[in-house]
Simulated scan of single mutants.
Amino acid sequence: MRKVKKNILEMNDGEIFEKAEYEHNKIMANINDPSTDDKPRELIVKIKYVPNRAQKKVDIIPFVSSKLGKIVPIGKTMSITQMILQDTGEKVDVLQEITGEADGQINIMGDITEPEVVLYGMDADRVLAKLNDK
């Protein structure tokens, strides 16, 4: 019988190592998520030893978990403006998303930026139907 010395992380065909790697990947994904806070994350490895003295055995039970950053709400600043419908001359209140690019600006790919216009109010569906008919 061949005898070798192994590390505790190699126990049970590397179960602890695999679980730690899995939790590590979850932590890294959580850190890379822009909607999470900047608090520290934790990788927790806990090993429970349960002896059975009568049979001279010990159960070794690994627990691997992580503490991730919390999801934080990302707000958006909107500009309240009025649009005039060309066909009727009607004034309509709209919310317009404020982006990092000016309306009509050309980006590096040659595309013209047009911020999304978000309408609110009772007549939003009717106004959108008129605007989209153009």
Results as ranks from 00 to 15, higher is better:
N132F: 07
S35A: 11
I112H: 01
F17H: 07
E42G: 07
D123I: 05
M11D: 04
A20W: 05
I60H: 02
I60C: 05
K130C: 03
S65I: 07
K39Y: 05
M78G: 10
I44A: 00
K26P: 05
M109G: 08
P40F: 06
E114Y: 12
Q82V: 12
M122I: 15
Q82D: 09
L43Q: 02
H24T: 15
L95E: 13
M1V: 15
D13P: 10
I84D: 03
P34V: 12
V64D: 02
A20G: 09
V92C: 02
P115A: 09
D93A: 08
K46Y: 09
G89H: 00
P34W: 05
R126G: 01
E21V: 12
Q105D: 00
G100K: 10
T81G: 05
N12R: 08
A129P: 04
I74K: 11
D33C: 08
N107F: 10
H24F: 15
I61R: 02
D13K: 11
H24W: 08
Q55G: 11
D111N: 05
K134F: 13
K19T: 01
M122T: 14
T99W: 01
D38N: 02
L43W: 04
I80E: 06
T99M: 04
G14T: 04
G69I: 03
Q86K: 12
Q96D: 06
K57V: 09
K5T: 15
Y49R: 02
V92Q: 03
K130G: 08
T36E: 04
D125T: 12
V72C: 04
G14A: 01
I108H: 12
L85Q: 04
I106H: 00
K5W: 08
E23C: 15
G14L: 09
S66D: 02
Y120V: 13
Y120P: 12
M83V: 15
M11V: 14
G89Q: 02
L85G: 00
D125L: 14
K130W: 02
Q86N: 15
R41G: 08
V58D: 00
N32H: 07
E90A: 05
L43Y: 04
Q96T: 13
N25E: 14
D111V: 12
T99D: 05
I112D: 01
T81L: 13
T81M: 08
I84L: 11
L9I: 11
K26A: 12
N12M: 13
K57G: 01
M122Y: 03
I106M: 12
